[in-house]
Design a protein around this nucleic acid. Structure first.
Lengths: 256, 256
DNA sequence: GCACTTACGTGCGCCGTCGAACAGATGCGT
DNA sequence: ACGCATCTGTTCGACGGCGCACGTAAGTGC
């Protein structure tokens, strides 16, 4: 049976806190393409995926859209509950079907106001999300589609059990904010290089190391930053560490 | 004399909390181009700008970079202190010189752990930052440079007292992540349309309404979202509102 | 095994951005 | 008022991505 603590946030929770919350979790199966959260709607649950992947997508009024980040077993869906903003314009859709556990919004708000471990870990994931989004901005600007595809595939792979990503080129195009044909071309290159194998909605990654080498450095950077953030929090049992540091004061001298 | 409560977060703070903190603020003048925070360094202060604007910039190892968001009197610089991540890969540079007030990191951490009004308002601004970044992603992907320039100018203008932005095209190019020539061309168009007037590092906005019409809808969307977030928080005196809502449960039915 | 839906592959012209090199203009210091 | 560094404007070929149209292949259901 699916265990909530396959989710990294719940796994990092001190046993006492987990025991306190465990009765409130509800198990849900997320089917691919499902809309977990509509733009502007209030959150009713926070979702802690174990095997599912949820995509955060922003679409503006003109229909232009792009994926902002993806959340799997590494985090939770429903950051506005943690930050206090109640809702968000982001849409959350199930990118890869699987299992998740959810907590009612009331419970999340209660935890937020009490400021316990769950809140602390969730805030940390909020920062990891910001890092993901930030690198997406740079990556979008400066990197070619095939490298972005590598990054996307690797990010997905990190949240999945095997070496296979089940998704059509159409969906990837939507996520990356490019044309479907551009994905076809990029995927074709990667396949020609023997890195992946594509067959009708199923990508098998043959050479993960090669894919990493082919990806832009954004992938490694995001991963490093997320690891740093997570480890810093998971390690700390007290929430008020890491404040006092004895580095030299930053100067306010203009650059160049 | 510069008043800390020109900053919107400090202004929204209940008087009792402000009175408690006021002695700990230090006034600083930020000069254009100064590096407020180097990537990866721990934060020593949180900055609350009043008339200055600070740019959040991410540069990867290859030198590719882009502005993620800008913070002025509407927020604070040092979100990682609020989220508990201690540091960040983002660089913070002074985009427009001016005044700010700062709090030592220790004080911010204390406030974070106590979970008072300052923390609540800061978290809300964190979500506003995410919104800014999110729309940047979509905007980068789908909108032409001249429209992005409009958005950038309007965002700056909202944080400045007059109708003038003092910045070279070189700097704007760096912020938008495009070539300097692209900015020249875009600015030329706007000038030809009578919206702005450009003269050696000083942009005067003649027709703000026209500029808004010319900008992509991302500007309005970001502004609406930030206003929503801020008002929701500023209005609430109790931190545990807005959790229980009686909307229909979201279905988990796949789309299309 | 059949037609049929769905997904992938390919060709074409168009346009916005890049990269680099260079010309012109403005404002500052002395 | 002059020289000069700095900022702005312009040109050119190259290229990546877009939008469209169409062809092909792989699964699905009867």
């Amino acid at each position: 049976m699916d265990d909530p603590r396959q989710n990294q946030i719940l796994a990092a929770l001190p046993d006492r806190d987990y025991a306190r919350l465990v009765g409130e979790f509800e198990h849900v199966t997320l089917v691919p393409g499902a809309l977990l959260h509509a733009p502007g709607a209030p959150f009713e649950f926070a979702y802690f995926p174990t095997t599912a992947i949820v995509a955060l997508i922003l679409a503006n009024d003109s229909g232009a859209s792009a994926e902002l980040a993806m959340t799997g077993k590494d985090g939770l869906v429903g950051i506005p509950l943690v930050l206090g903003g109640v809702s968000t314009r982001f849409a959350m859709t199930v990118q890869s079907g699987g299992e998740a556990w959810r907590l009612p919004a009331e419970v999340m708000c209660r935890e937020r106001d009490q400021g316990g471990s769950l809140q602390r870990l969730s805030l940390c994931y909020a920062q990891a999300l910001m890092a993901q989004m930030a690198y997406s901005i740079v990556c979008n600007r400066h990197h070619l589609v095939d490298r972005q595809l590598c990054r996307w595939l690797l990010s997905s792979l990190d949240l999945l059990p095997g070496n296979q990503v089940d998704v059509t080129q159409e969906v990837i195009a939507h996520m990356l904010g490019v044309r479907r044909e551009a994905v076809t071309e990029a995927a074709g290159k990667l396949q020609a290089e023997g890195l992946i194998r594509y067959r009708r909605g199923h990508i098998t990654v043959n050479d993960r190391a090669g894919l990493e080498a082919r990806a832009c450095e954004c992938y490694r950077a995001v991963r490093a930053e997320c690891d740093r953030l997570f480890e810093a929090q998971a390690a700390s049992k007290c929430s008020s560490i890491n404040c006092t540091l004895d580095t030299p004061r930053n100067s306010l001298i203009p650059r160049r």
